[in-house]
Computed example of a mutant assay.
Amino acid sequence: MTQQRGSLNQCPRIREPQNLTGVSEFHLLGLSEDPDLQPIIFGLFLSMYLVTVLGNLLIILAVSSDPHLHTPMYFFLSNLSLADIGFISTTVPEMLVNIQTHSGVISFVGCLTQMSLFILFLCMDDLLLTLMAYDRFVAICHPLHYAVIMNPRLCVRLVLVSFLFGLLDSQVHNLITIHFSYFENVDIANFFCDPSQVLGLACSDTFTVNILMYFVGAIYGFLPLIGIIFSYYKIISSILRIPSSGGKYKAFSTCGSHLSVVCLFYGTGIGVYLFSNKSSSTKKGTVASVMYTVVTPMLNPFIYSLNNKDIKSALWRLHRRAV
C-alpha cells in the first residue's frame, strides 16, 4: 500500500515530529483475509444488498402508489426505507469492489465521505424510528386530534429536520477527524470506515475523543431512545385501559412491527458502539457491525410487510397492475 503521508506505529508525542507524516489513505481489513472465503463473502453480501434494495424499493413503491397508505405512519415508513437504501449503499458496494480488486485501500477523502454518508443515514434511521413512535403515540393516545396534529406539513418538516440533524452530526465527525494530523495506524479492522475506529486511531488525547463521542452518542442515540421508550410507556398505558381484548390486539398490532425494528436496530447498534472496545481489532466487533449495517436494513421490509395487512394488500395490487 502506497502512502504519501505514511503508516504510523507511534504518535508524535512519542517520536520526533520531523520524522513523521500523516496518512493519505486507510486500509480496510474486511471480514476475512482468507482468499478461499472471499467468493463466499462476495456472494453473500451481494445477495443481501440486492434483497435490501429491492425490498425497500417495494415498500416505497407500495406507499407512493396506494392512496390508502398516504398517511403519516406510511410516509415515515417510506422515508425509513429510503434511508435504509442509502445506509447499506454507503458500505456494501465499496466492500464488494474491494473484494473483486483484492484491495482494501480507501483514500483519506474517500474515508471521510463514507463516514459522512454513513452517519447521515444512521442518524436518519434513528430519528425516523423516533418519529414513527411519536406518530403511534398520537394515534393511540390522542386519536381525536390525530389528523390535526400529524398534518402533512408537520410530517414533511419532521423528516427534513431529521435529515438536517443527521447532516450536522456527520459534519461534526468529519471536522473532528480532519482536525487530527496524525494517526497511530492506517489499518481499520472493519469492512468500512467505522467512525469510532477511525477516531480511535488518531494521535490525540483519547479521553477527550471518547468523551466527545459519548456526548454525541447520547444526543443522537439515547435521547431518541428515551423518546421512544416514553412514547411506548404512554401507548401501553392507554392500550391497557381499552375494555375489549379485540381493541387491545388491534392497537398492539399497529406497534408490533415498529417495536421489532427498534429492538433490532438499537440492540445491535448499542452493542457495537458502547459495549465493544473501540481500539480492538478483533473480528467480533466487525461481525457485530454487520448486524446493524447490513442485516437490519435487509430485515426491515420483511418485518413491516409480513406483519402488515395494508402493505401486503398494496403490494398485491401493485403486482396485479404490473402483470
Rank of each mutant, 00 (worst) to 15 (best):
S196A: 12
A251K: 01
C155L: 04
A314W: 09
N9I: 09
H68F: 11
L315I: 09
M124A: 05
C263R: 00
S276Y: 08
S313L: 12
T91W: 00
F215I: 13
S65M: 11
P93Y: 06
N56I: 10
D194V: 03
I211A: 09
H102I: 05
G217K: 01
L306G: 10
C111S: 09
S245G: 11
H70F: 00
L122H: 12
A62S: 15
F183E: 04
Q114F: 00
T254L: 09
R136D: 02
D126M: 06
T101C: 02
I119E: 00
F302R: 00
S313M: 12
C155R: 02
T90R: 00
T91R: 00
C141H: 06
I40P: 02
H68D: 15
L44T: 15
N307R: 13
R317W: 12
F191K: 02
Q4W: 08
L50T: 15
L120W: 02
S279M: 06
Q114C: 05
S81M: 01
T113V: 14
G200W: 10
L112H: 05
L61Y: 13
V216D: 04
D84S: 15
P224E: 02
W316L: 11
P17N: 05
P72K: 07
F165R: 03
R157M: 04
K283W: 09
A139S: 14
V159A: 02
T130M: 12
I178D: 04
V261F: 06
G22F: 13
D310K: 14
F121W: 03
D34Q: 03
P17S: 08
V209E: 08
R320L: 12
C11H: 01
S24H: 11
S81H: 02
N98S: 14
N210M: 06
V262H: 00
F118W: 03
T254A: 11
L54A: 14
A147V: 11
I88N: 01
T282S: 15
D135R: 00
